[in-house]
Design a protein around this nucleic acid. Structure first.
Lengths: 95, 95
DNA sequence: CAAAAACATCGAAATATTTAGATATTTAAA
DNA sequence: TTTAAATATCTAAATATTTCGATGTTTTTG
């Protein structure tokens, strides 16, 4: 039922999560009721816009976030399927 | 019931898992029936001994592996509690 | 259409990680 | 007790990542 990730995907996801800013971004988006915009996320950190863009790209490239372009804004949601599959992979290590 | 990890621990664990060799090490140790020795792990890879030692250290420092010194050998097992707590953290992102 | 807003991309500097070789330490075996 | 085996540590080179500023693109607004 849950998608299965290969080891390369797991590596990429782990790498994406291995940064304090990107972890916080995941938390912010996870906790928000609705979609979160890029500038909402940026506002939380003291980082250049290009840096934030880079971090978000890594989360999107790892399929942890789904980005939806809405005019000149980007909105994000957690990719629940991939997060669940990743958690599943980790849990499979302890079987 | 499951231990709760803080964001710094999650970052460290993610970083530790964000490398192909270290992921493979986790898989090898996970799949093995009994304890795995350092030299067993090294034999699977074409890496210098010092490099392997470095990778194993990172997994141990992240509390993903428990090392047990047995004479001049090191034996490893998966730290199931920490792995489970990590998977739990990931799952908490999709609530 | 010109200006502004939101985001992406590029280039370069700063920093961190990976890797190997040399050497050290600890324990077992001869 | 010398030697060998297993692992750790140190140093340095190679490589990768992070960060910013400058600039580019797209879309909205005046």
């Amino acid at each position: 039922m849950i998608a299965c990730l290969n080891i390369k995907q797991v590596e990429k996801i782990s790498k994406a999560l291995g940064d304090p800013y990107r972890l916080k971004i995941m938390n912010i988006i996870s906790k928000s009721e609705s979609c979160v915009q890029c500038c909402d996320v940026s506002a939380e950190f003291n980082l250049a816009q290009s840096t934030m863009s880079h971090h978000l790209k890594q989360l999107i490239d790892a399929d942890l976030l789904i980005a939806d372009k809405d005019g000149r804004n980007l909105k994000f949601v957690i990719n629940k399927e991939v997060c669940a599959a990743y958690a599943d992979y980790i849990n499979s290590l302890l079987l």
